[in-house]
Amino acid sequence: MTALPEPRRLLTIKDWLALHEDYQFRLELQEGSLTMAPSPEPEHMLAGLDLGSQVRDQLPPDLVAVPEVDINLELAGEDEPATVRRPDLVLVRRSELQRRKSEGGILRASGVVAVIEIVSPGSRRMDYKVKRVDYADAGIPHYWIIDLDSPVSLLPLSLTEELGYVDNGEVTGTYTTTSPCPLTIRLDQLG
């Protein structure tokens, strides 16, 4: 097991890349500080798998659905305290995957078109408040929040230049959109 760095200074993206994750919890980096969350519950993981399956088959060739992957939000320079998030699912441009494969590192927010977070009991405030601001600041065009409490709901947020994310109203049952591409998600089939 790799030892966690001592909290003597804020971590940069280079520091993050030097960490090797073999922990029993999820790590993210928020303005240079490591944050930890417990591993998701089975229902959360099943909902994520179901969501990924539904979305994957509908994506155009230039987009890919990637579950639980680190994203450099690019909110700071290379040598400044970084912010790295690990959303439940991201829709990313295929060209960004190719860039990462050839250059190394992690995916960058500039290649992400949508981030989807599934709310956990301990993540509600983080998902609805903190990450909403972070993803908007990173310029990610779409942020969707899925709440598994009955009835399962999705809150689709779209980025505007003037207002940040605009709340498009919570949806239950079936969610249909044309942006970032045509998609239909059966929320009642998650988990």
Score class of each variant (00 low, 15 high):
P38Q: 09
V69Y: 06
G104W: 04
I146M: 00
L190F: 12
L51T: 03
P156H: 04
P141V: 03
G191Y: 10
S95A: 15
I146N: 00
L10N: 02
L4V: 10
H20A: 12
V133A: 15
E96G: 03
M45Y: 07
K129V: 15
L107W: 01
F25Q: 13
E6D: 14
H44F: 08
E161V: 09
S150I: 10
I146F: 01
D79P: 02
G164N: 08
G105L: 08
V130C: 02
V171S: 04
A37T: 14
E170A: 09
L163D: 15
E78A: 14
Y143H: 07
T176R: 15
W144S: 06
P180G: 11
P67T: 10
V119K: 01
N168V: 03
A114Q: 08
L107A: 06
T178Q: 15
Y128S: 07
A3Y: 07
L49P: 00
E96R: 03
A3C: 07
P61H: 07
K101L: 12
L159N: 01
A65W: 03
V113E: 07
R93F: 10
I116A: 04
P151H: 10
E28S: 10
Q54R: 08
P87I: 07
I116S: 00
V55Y: 00
L73I: 02
I185R: 02
L59S: 03
Y165F: 11
T35E: 11
S153R: 09
S110Q: 11
Y175I: 06
L27Y: 06
Q24F: 10
R94P: 00
L29W: 08
K131M: 04
M45T: 15
Y143R: 05
L10F: 07
S123F: 05
S53H: 12
H44P: 08
G169R: 03
L46D: 11
D149S: 15
S153C: 07
L73R: 00
Q24Y: 09
Q24I: 05
L89N: 00
E41I: 13
W144K: 04
P7C: 10
L49K: 11
